[in-house]
Amino acid sequence: MKGKVYIRGCAAISPQESFSGSFVPQPPTLADDNILRAKEPDYKAFIAPNNLRRMSRMLKMGLTAALQCLQNAGITVPDAIITGTGKGSLQDTERFLHDIRQYAEAALNPTPFIQSTYNSVNGLIALQQQCTRYNNTFVHRGFSFEHAVLDGLMLLREGNAANVLAGGFDEITKEHFYIKSRIGYWKTALTQPADLFSSNTPGALAGEGAVFFVLGAAPAAVSLEGIKMMYKPSQESLGQALETFLSQHQLTPADIDLLITGQSGDSNHDHWYQFVQQKYFPDTIATPFKHLCGEYDTAGAFALWMAVQRMQEEERLKHVLIYNQFYGEQHTLMLLGR
């Protein structure tokens, strides 16, 4: 890889107090369902009232996180806007499906249809910041945000951008929670995030969030050294890929100061993390993150955000590795350095 890529700014709207103030990880207390809901900021500070009135929740959340991220990085117009989302604006998709039925296909409001398109958040960011350059949206479950990152890294390497805005966003709705509950995505009994890793039951807790980064060539405290995705690997091929990935960066597992894992407390899939930890990182400090943000397609973006926070706080962390997978299918490694 030519030239280093740095994380020049980030912002997260999540079930944590992540958007404003200092981040103190705190597993939320759930009242009556297994959903970790994002703590939403006051959008009026970011979006003009005339634009805000039509926007659904996902659009507001995505746009606001993106704008705050640009502000944190001290950039107005990035050279590229790339996002990942597994489900886009679920509320709009659901509303349009319900409207079609309720009004028997007659006189339908166009707004939910427009906003249900997966690239609508991207378009809004471009519109608001007048960014007329590269713009792309990936929609592939646990590879959505990850390909946004890879696309950004490639643009920087190609010399076609100096600053890339890359992010991931997803929301959960009651309706979608129910749909996925029918195929075992979630834990059936109410489980508190604090008890997630001792639950030993199938399913995860649902989560959501919008997390953005500015990736650039200009030096900053934390660098993004690389990303590796593996689609439906075997345990053996995952291990091989991990070894190759680290050696490509002249590292061994012993060089990793902190391992961030995507354990979701799901007894069907957490064995992946046990395997990686036991085989490669028996003595490495490891920390999970899904008790803080829940499980969702683009939860990897929250993990990256958390890694950056930790590295900014703890000077001793030289290399941080994130390993995350989504329901056993999309596996990703992300390596951070200085």
Binding site: N50, L108, P110, I114
Partner: peptide, 22 residues
């Protein structure tokens, strides 16, 4: 009022739903 073309479509929906005018 600062409305745009999407609002104009929304107003046409209003005319159709509330006043049965297409």
């Amino acid at each position: 009022l600062g409305l745009d073309s999407i609002d104009s479509l929304e107003l046409m929906v209003l005319l159709e739903r509330q006043y049965q005018i297409k």
